[in-house]
Design a protein around this nucleic acid. Structure first.
Length: 848
RNA sequence: GCCCGGAUGGCGAAACUGGCAGACGCAGCGGACUUAAAAUCCGCAGACUCUAACGAGUCGUGGGGGUUCAAAUCCCCCUCCGGGCACCA
């Protein structure tokens, strides 16, 4: 038996010791070569932005991934568990202005600090594969991809309305605008500006991105739904209404050809079957035709300007949906191509120029919004669909799709679906429309007017125009010294050394593109670089990517559901089409962890409720911090952080330490082998509990990831061992059993509390690193109970519990229940109507 | 408005296929050890009622209804909280 003073658990001594030992052997966390013959497992947590201030909310997902990685190592998988830094971005520029430190210096210092924190928490990353996106050996491949995509027409430049955040002093992608505000600056309204911008043609993959979601059954339904909504597929038809030339009736009918757009108005509708009920055409204020109308009428122009102003205000208020509908009649008319009906053309503030064709037909009888508008402005309402089931007639059948057409000429009598098909065919034959699928998804605007990002590898030459930088001139390096300014165009444009270059084609003086790429470009493909991080001839070796991809388990916050997670899906498809990868999707399974809450709010610096992992580790140890994070709630749920809880876990770890150290000499003395059936009494009970615990934890790892109940199961096991301490101390439990118990206990604990487990592994005299020790296997024979306690209910209420043999059949259980004294007294004088016996579970007597 | 989650003791939670509700832990209470305290160990602990006590009974998983021998779990309706989407034609 060990001395008292050896029994004190001191993480401050144990943890640095093992941290140092493991740092000296980086192969411990390294993935093995692809030829190792083991099954591969790629577990990845989303790479962090190195902000320098880390709280326990940030590290929760790394702990989840780390526990998983450690268990997979022990189960004999070739595990890839890398980490890197999403190191470009605005905070570095802001810090640069504030502290007068270059962004690069600030960023690299933060990375060093965060890396130290990660190591302290024993997050087992393969640092040999570390990537830092702000370094040229990484971002040159952003440029390389940009050029490949440019060659394929997947990158283009155009002038367009873009979202401008005045706080960031740069353009934002649609995905980065949340409720009209910048995603980084809550409350800062995004302005609309007209700028020349670079775009990635993500819309070319819209349908595939949508279809792929059906196959991603390892992703949370919530994320898939959000992406579906974002992509926003609508099936319908485009139809031309003919513009009535003033005084000339329907000239231009069926014309087409050049100039045709001035004689037609193309609308998009998902309900072409209601077209006979169209009583007006509504244009967005920005519609090209509106400009023609207003040119002729100053009064109309003033009215339209007012509509534009209302739209702008609503957009700035962040809620275009709440705009009060206003419209103005243009005094012009359009001709319905199906029935020649003459309908007025209006301009309305709720029509979006950027969706569909920027023009709609208004069918008040069958669309709630059109109904509202028509009622307000006294436009006619014509019903053209008769619902199959006549609801109480007062209500208009706004959206009924299972109706029959009426008042619709030759189409009357058709069902809505039949009519849609027939009407589309007619339009196509008459060349005044077609079936059309449109998406809400827009192309990804990637230009940023900031200096701390990947330079876009393009050159403007007076003679050759836009010229891509040739591959052999990559990377286009950022200047060493960047002078940060917050206003106007990108600071890079004011740095002559960067700006001025020569044309790669003709050699004459030329000017570089000074916009940089959105940082989401960096994170769209980083996980491929981990497979081959040092490659200087290609972004990665396709053979390595083929081995490791797709990612088996991706872990991160749900806030990236439609940013990073849609961009990286797009990127994977592009890379597949470039022949670099064979997988269609980057990650097989996605896990989104819950938030960490403190004092009722999400942990954040601005709320002042952050808990630092360093402080926790100082006070209770890294192991206790880890185990608490996993024990307090299942990983997918929000976690309410309580320092007292960490203290409790720390007490538990101290108990484990004392228990193992106390009986380690017994375990070490064990010799020979013993048949598993030879044990009885306390030894048998302990072995049974042990093997039940192994089975439970193994199952949880494979299935539902309820790591909180895994920890609880280990606690139960420890409690049970401790309960027979007297017998253990008296030597009543064979040394071999003690050895198996302690050894397995330490192994089960190893993924959760790696430092403590390593220390105890050594104390048990075990050879080799516990990081690669095989995961214990549950023996079903030992895990099985001999006797079971069967609850007995009368009329569904628990009365007592009877003990029966584990293999007792229904008859035996029923007999045991009926002969029980308590049961007898309860059923005396009554009739047992029915007996339900569920072997192994319970007995229920129905008594009258 | 629409679509996802969620609601269980004083608190975090557990109950995996409908089968003993509250495992495990925090906070709490009582005891042992100690001159004392800390640490540790042992025990109690959903609410209510009855009983001097041993015990016994009733209620109980946001609310209401239903299915079933049996419901935290399945079905219908409702409330509240969190998240996402929202004139998308």
């Amino acid at each position: 038996m060990a001395e008292e003073n050896e029994l004190r658990y001191d993480p401050a001594a144990i943890e640095p010791k093992w941290q140092q030992r493991w740092a000296a052997d980086p192969t411990l966390y390294a993935a093995e070569p692809v030829s190792c013959g083991k099954p591969k497992y790629y577990v990845l947590e989303m790479l962090p932005y190195p902000s320098g201030v880390l709280h326990v909310g940030h590290v929760r997902n790394y702990m989840i991934g780390d526990v998983l990685a450690r268990q997979m190592w022990m189960r004999g998988y070739n595990v890839l568990h890398p980490m890197g830094w999403d190191a470009f971005g605005l905070p570095a520029e802001n810090a640069a202005v504030k502290n007068n430190t270059p962004p690069r210096e600030w960023t690299l210092a933060n990375i060093a600090a965060m890396k130290r924190q990660f190591d302290r928490l024993c997050l087992g990353f393969d640092w040999a594969r570390e990537i830092t996106t702000c370094l040229p050996d990484y971002y040159r491949w952003n440029q390389w991809f940009f050029l490949r995509m440019y060659e394929r027409g997947l990158v283009y430049r155009k002038k367009s309305k873009v979202n401008w955040c005045p706080e960031c002093s740069t353009v934002l992608a649609n995905e980065q605008v949340v409720e009209g505000c910048c995603w980084r600056h809550e409350g800062t309204l995004v302005e609309q500006r007209d700028l020349e911008q670079w775009f990635f043609r993500i819309t070319a993959y819209a349908q595939e991105l949508l279809d792929g979601l059906d196959k991603l059954d390892g992703w949370p339904e919530k994320v898939r739904t959000m992406q579906r909504n974002w992509i926003g597929r609508s099936e319908g038809a485009e139809v031309d209404f003919f513009l009535e030339e003033q005084g000339l009736g329907t000239k231009g009918l069926g014309a087409g050809g050049p100039g045709a757009e001035t004689t037609r108005i193309r609308v998009f509708t998902t309900r072409v079957d209601t077209i006979f009920g169209a009583t007006s055409v509504q244009l967005a204020p920005q519609h090209a035709l509106v400009a023609e109308f207003t040119a002729a009428s100053g009064e109309l122009k003033a009215q339209v300007d007012e509509l534009l102003e209302q739209q702008k205000k609503a957009r700035e208020a962040g809620d275009l949906g709440a705009i009060e509908k206003h419209g103005v009649p243009t005094g012009r008319f359009a001709i319905n191509p199906y029935n020649g009906e003459r309908v007025p053309i209006w301009v309305a503030n709720y029509i979006l120029a950027e969706y569909g064709t920027g023009a709609i037909m208004s069918v008040p009888a069958h669309d709630e919004r059109d109904f509202e508008f028509a009622t307000k402005y006294n436009l006619p309402i014509v019903q053209v669909i008769q619902p199959v089931q006549n609801e109480d007639g007062a209500k208009l059948p706004f959206v009924s799709e299972d109706g029959v057409l009426v008042n619709s000429g030759e189409y009357s009598g058709m069902s809505c679906t039949e009519a849609q098909k027939a009407l589309q065919e007619t339009a196509e034959r008459g060349a005044f429309g077609e079936g059309k699928v449109i998406f809400r998804l827009r192309d990804w605007g990637v230009s940023r007017q900031r200096p701390w990002g990947t330079p876009i590898p393009m050159v403007y030459c007076e003679w050759d125009g836009l010229v891509p930088v040739p591959d052999d001139q990559l990377p286009v390096l950022l200047p060493d010294k960047i002078e940060i300014t917050q206003q106007g165009s990108s600071p890079l444009a004011r740095m002559p050394d960067f700006l001025h270059t020569t044309c790669p084609k003709c050699g004459s003086a030329a000017r570089r593109e000074t916009d940089t790429m959105d940082t989401f470009v960096d994170s769209s493909w980083y996980f491929y670089r981990y497979t081959d991080p040092k490659n200087d001839r290609a972004p990665f070796d396709p053979a390595l990517a083929r081995y490791w991809f797709p990612i088996d388990q991706y872990i991160g916050g749900v806030e990236h559901a439609i940013l990073h997670l849609i961009y990286s899906r797009f990127w994977t498809k592009v890379m597949r089409d470039l022949g670099l990868v064979v997988n269609d999707e980057p990650a097989r399974r996605l896990f989104t962890q819950g938030m960490v809450i403190k004092d009722g709010a999400k942990m954040s610096k601005s709320k002042g409720n952050v808990v630092s992992p360093d402080e926790m580790a100082d006070q209770y140890g890294a192991d206790a911090t880890r185990v608490y994070s996993l024990f307090a709630a299942p990983p997918d749920r929000d976690l309410e952080w309580q320092d007292d809880g960490v203290a409790g876990v720390s007490r538990f770890l101290a108990r484990v330490y004392r228990l193992v150290v106390k009986y380690a000499p017994v375990a070490r003395s064990a010799r020979g082998s013993q048949s598993k059936t030879q044990n009885g009494g306390a030894a048998l009970k302990l072995l049974r509990k042990l093997h039940q615990t192994i089975a439970k934890i193994t199952l949880d790892f494979e299935g539902r990831w309820h790591f909180n109940t895994c920890v609880a199961a280990i606690m139960e096991l420890v409690n049970e061992i401790q309960a027979v301490d007297a017998q253990l101390a008296a030597g009543e439990v064979p040394a071999l059993v003690v050895r198996e118990l302690l050894r397995s206990l330490v192994l089960l604990l190893a993924p959760f509390a790696p430092y403590l487990a390593a220390e105890l592994w050594e104390k048990l005299g075990e050879e080799g690193s516990i990081l690669r020790a095989p995961w214990p296997v549950s023996d079903p024979e030992l895990a099985g109970e001999e006797e079971l306690e069967i609850p007995v209910q009368i009329n569904g209420k628990l009365v007592t519990v009877v003990c029966v043999a584990a293999d007792a059949d229904a008859k035996a259980i029923e007999a045991a229940a009926l002969t029980d004294a308590k049961v007898q007294s309860r059923i005396a004088g009554k009739t047992v109507v029915k007996v339900i016996v569920v072997p192994g579970k319970l007995v229920n007597l129905v008594v009258k």
